[in-house]
Design a protein around this nucleic acid. Structure first.
Lengths: 147, 147
DNA sequence: GGTTTGTCTATAGCGCCTGTAGACTATTCA
DNA sequence: TGAATAGTCTACAGGCGCTATAGACAAACC
């Protein structure tokens, strides 16, 4: 299940993506528009900033804008930043790989094979769909089986 | 992320699926074989029994067996029993549908569309792959886009 | 009737998610 | 220069769910 935090992050980014790049949005403005607790949203945006997705300016006339364009930010990327790895099993994550403590032979693990398949299907969609796609309603199609 | 509990449940069911149907397995036996805390496994098997996937007998010579055959039990079914709905958003679950509290128009929600797509891809694999498939290493392929 | 084996309920420890608080810093403008 | 604006950063609290563990109980068998 997608966390509330990730949902907020995506909504906030979509809000920014709807604006011309040179036009800033206030935290308070996004919070009100999308019904997100303001202090919580602060943390989220800061996190997204630290990962290079948005930029900000302080003081009067300050606010947030996208740093990358809406078609360069994938949904999957955002989810991973906020919620961490999407893999259903730790042994299926590339960035946060961990062996399953009790799995004697990973290459023959029945569960691993099944979930690798389903995970690949999910990732195919989320990593190929961008904020821009989401706004126009064009979700990526699941990619056909690789091998 | 798949819960530890669901992992245990699947492993236990796979263990049972490897046995001839008339041959029972003790909780203790499964627990030891798959390194699952015994008391925890008791609860899990009981849960699976209440959902009609396994049956049990008490006393000497007792133990657990599958109630349905291994090709009639899908991975998705087990995950839902143990972990609840797999939908990434409450508004995408059929059995446990809930409106997103702050979503003004579900039919036009950009997030819903994207995650509906990815969720469909996941479900396609997990609901079509059975215990029997998992044992033989034949995971289902992601189903092509419906519409 | 004792042993084996599953059944059921309660509860504890712990970490994560969600959200709040408050002090601080940078920027602008008068 | 100083006040107002707006983001930055750290800490923490409440609550819930996950992962077990404990122990009393019930059924089946010998």
């Amino acid at each position: 299940m997608l966390s509330q935090k990730a949902k907020y992050a995506l909504r906030a980014l979509l809000a920014l993506a709807e604006r011309p790049t040179d036009q800033v949005m206030l935290i308070a403005e996004i919070a009100e528009r999308d019904h997100i607790p303001k202090k919580f949203l602060e943390q989220i945006l800061l996190d997204l900033k630290h990962h290079g997705l948005v930029q900000s300016r302080r003081g009067r006339g300050g606010g947030y804008t996208l740093l990358k364009s809406a078609d360069e930010i994938s949904i999957g990327q955002v989810v991973r930043i906020i919620d961490g790895p999407m893999a259903p099993l730790p042994c299926l994550s590339r960035v946060a790989y961990r062996r399953c403590s009790d799995c004697p032979d990973e290459s023959r693990c029945a569960l691993r094979k099944v979930f690798a398949e389903s995970h690949a299907a999910t990732v195919a969609v989320l990593d190929r769909t961008t904020l821009a796609d989401a706004l126009t309603g064009n979700a990526a199609e699941p990619v056909p089986k690789v091998a």
